[in-house]
């Protein structure tokens, strides 16, 4: 049972690394977002360090969303998706594994880049660690929720923007608890663990809802 899952995981990982280095583009976009914000709010380091966790989270959200539109579309365009539906493997698991590979190729680099980008925003080491940890736990939820949007827009030529519009409202809880957990770690009186555990719960819920909903959408999309 595991060999087909591993084959799918490795194939998706290979594809995302080889096709235009999507991991690099995501991190680059993340960097660009973080660079642009100070031009808007001004270079005041105190202000930046206060809103730093939020900037990093929003940057990660946008970078995740922009990378998602090809998650299923590339497979649909060349007929792979039809064959996957016929392969005799549970589609929900297929979606989950594809999301996992996608997260490792594009989400994990964002998490790794976060501490570096936090330097630009003058975050304290503690805040840096907190933001990175919340991103590590929270970005899988963004990918899994985004997969629903990717599955719904799979048949559209230019689904990328619509995907973002569909998914952003669904991603709001993740953003709320991600940022508040990171903030709680910085400002003392608020407990860190409460929002952090809720964030973990959100990721786990997304790991169920995302694949089930995406698989249903993909079955309909095969018309």
């Amino acid at each position: 049972m595991t060999s087909w899952a591993l084959a799918l995981f490795l194939r998706d990982l290979r594809l995302s690394v080889r096709v235009g280095g999507s991991a690099l583009v995501g991190v680059l976009f993340f960097l660009a977002v973080v660079t642009v914000i100070p031009f808007g709010v001004g270079p005041d380091l105190n202000l930046l360090s206060r809103i730093g966790p939020a900037i990093l989270w929003i940057g990660a959200l946008l970078a995740t969303l922009l990378g998602l539109d090809r998650l299923f579309q590339a497979d649909r365009d060349d007929g792979t998706l039809d064959l996957m539906l016929m392969a005799g493997r549970p589609l929900e698991l297929v979606v989950l594994i594809k999301c996992l590979a996608h997260w490792v190729a594009t989400g994990l680099p964002l998490v790794v880049a976060a501490p570096l980008l936090a330097v630009f925003l003058n975050l304290e080491p503690l805040a840096m660690g907190a933001v990175t940890l919340t991103l590590l736990v929270g970005t899988p939820a963004l990918t899994l929720i985004g997969a629903i949007g990717a599955a719904l827009t799979v048949s559209l030529r230019r689904g990328g923007l619509l995907l973002a519009v569909l998914v952003v409202p669904l991603a709001i809880p993740v953003l709320i608890f991600g940022v508040s957990a990171a903030d709680a770690a910085i400002h003392d009186p608020v407990p860190f663990l409460t929002p952090f555990l809720i964030l973990c719960a959100l990721s786990l819920i997304a790991a169920v809802i995302g694949p089930v909903a995406s698989a249903a959408a993909l079955r309909f999309a095969s018309d």
Binding site: G20, G21, L24, L28, A32, T35, P38, L45, L48
Partner: peptide, 26 residues
């Protein structure tokens, strides 16, 4: 890091380099 004019310009230059490299790779 401070958002000094010179540092910021160099950061923008770095982003341009990385963007060009990505374009070549893609």
């Amino acid at each position: 890091w401070v958002w000094d004019a010179r540092l910021t310009s160099v950061l923008v230059l770095l982003i341009m380099y990385l963007g060009l490299m990505t374009l070549w790779r893609t």
